[in-house]
Amino acid sequence: MSLEEKVKEIIVEKLGVAADKVKEDAHFIEDLGADSLDTVELVMAFEEEFGVEIPDEDAQEITTVKAAISYLRKKMDQAD
């Protein structure tokens, strides 16, 4: 499974939304019905899945599907 697919899968699971709603430009709060606690949980799930640590100041910027994918891709590339 690609990084992109895995991120989308986590979002579907954690936010309980249909997979076709999880488009690249979807905003967690505005489009996918998340609240502030959901976004914390999402970031936690990303950390767990990809074995990275996401500092709070970075986490604040991860507000869309696209932002999550590009942030994690960058983070994973650095790790390699």
Binding site: L37, V40, E41, M44, E47, E48, E53
Partner: peptide, 10 residues
């Protein structure tokens, strides 16, 4: 502690 769910308290 960083893995404790934000939903734990509520």
């Amino acid at each position: 502690p960083r893995r404790v769910s934000p939903y734990f308290v509520p």
